[in-house]
Design a protein around this nucleic acid. Structure first.
Lengths: 223, 223
DNA sequence: CTGGATCCATGATGATACTG
DNA sequence: CAGTATCATCATGGATCCAG
């Protein structure tokens, strides 16, 4: 009955940043949060995205983030699945995620390596960040991606882009719909060709999509 | 001659954020960067601020950050001191620091605990963050703090606040000058009284200073 | 099958002391 | 001032196992 051995590595500083890092500074923690920003996920959904994490570590991180008030677990009696999602305090970590992605794009960018785990969600996030950094485009947009049979929505209200892992609210919601596998989308992003990818929509939004999506390949300093 | 055993904990993900965290995600790394944002520091300056770090770990972090192109070391022959500072890529981590501080203020705030290491620089950073979060003040300001015999400048251009660890460029630069110890400033911030603190300047800027600095004590959800 | 737990190995960090 | 050396401890990874 020793239960949770509070292993919390603390700094014991007054500094706000140190105290923030006591909650989200452990290995994997911010990556777990990154994957919950786009919507609730199950344990195995997270395992898929966090290539290389062990179930032990994921389990431990989820417990710690729960205790820290950043993640909530939805366990319903009689249901197998446990759905993890962010609390409001967890959602407030969005700017931290964005700032790290922005820095990564500017200073740690490189193309996917062979054999490197690459999840659709992360590729889309990179693309959004590249568009945000490299263009001064301020038109609204609604793109619906269907990748490996799963749905993602990429949306701009003219000021800010967002990424959500869900299906469109209505069949006509999107102005561009992209159907592909993650692998073929990755290929497309770095060398546009219409093999193994299907892009539908009105001519103008589709043109704009093609132009914006290509920024990831070109605009950034490659490493 | 095995030299640097590249111990880099990698994730080997395509994700930009994972790659950013491979460089700055280790324990203490972001705190080192935080303390270099305000200006170049020596090894022992950093030791003072990073309460609880061991010289071994600090040394290791500085080497790693040097290799990562985030920190540069200025070693001049015939001089004992080594001055560490941020490269442009390191300075680009500013938004990450700010985002973590912002979250810390909203969700992990509490008053300094007895015996808790508290450095002037971190107290000032917290105060700035509180002012930024809690007020819609948009007047320029130039405050000169002299704490424990060291100089700090807090400045607002009307849009953004900044903190630098240096002396004012000219004797008349500041519109408010605060002379105190770190401990007495901490007391003052949480319960204004003019004991052990000296505030000079024109009446209006001083009034404004007193009003703004009190936000740290009051506006935030205390934990 | 999902959602873990357990055991062991290894690597990262901390404590303390000491040095050019 | 700017570290290094040594030893101890803790966190993480790898592999395997298990209950609902």
């Amino acid at each position: 009955m020793e239960g949770v051995t509070r292993n919390v590595r603390t700094y014991n500083h007054f500094c706000l940043m140190a105290r923030a890092l006591e909650r989200v500074g452990d290995r994997w923690s911010l990556l777990v949060i990154r994957d919950l920003v786009t919507g609730a996920k199950r344990f195995t959904d997270l395992m898929d995205r966090l290539g290389g994490i062990t179930p032990k570590t994921l389990s431990q991180r989820l417990r710690e983030l729960e205790v820290a008030g950043i993640v909530t677990a939805d366990r319903e009696p009689g249901r197998r699945e446990v759905w993890y999602s962010l609390t409001p305090a967890g959602a407030d970590l969005g700017p931290v995620i964005d700032a790290l992605n922005w820095w990564g794009l500017r200073h740690a960018w490189r193309r996917p390596q062979p054999g490197e785990p690459l999840h659709a969600e992360h590729l889309l996030r990179s693309a959004i960040q590249a568009i945000d950094l490299a263009t001064d485009d301020h038109e609204p947009a609604r793109w619906h991606f269907r990748l490996d049979g799963r749905d993602y929505l990429v949306e701009s209200d003219g000021h800010q882009w967002s990424l959500t892992a869900k299906a469109p609210p209505t069949p006509t919601w999107a102005d561009v719909t992209i159907t592909a596998t993650t692998a073929s989308l990755a290929t497309f992003v770095f060398a546009p060709s219409d093999l193994d990818i299907d892009i539908t929509g009105e001519t103008e939004p589709v043109q704009r999509f093609r132009q914006l999506i290509s920024t990831l390949a070109t605009v950034v300093h490659p490493v």
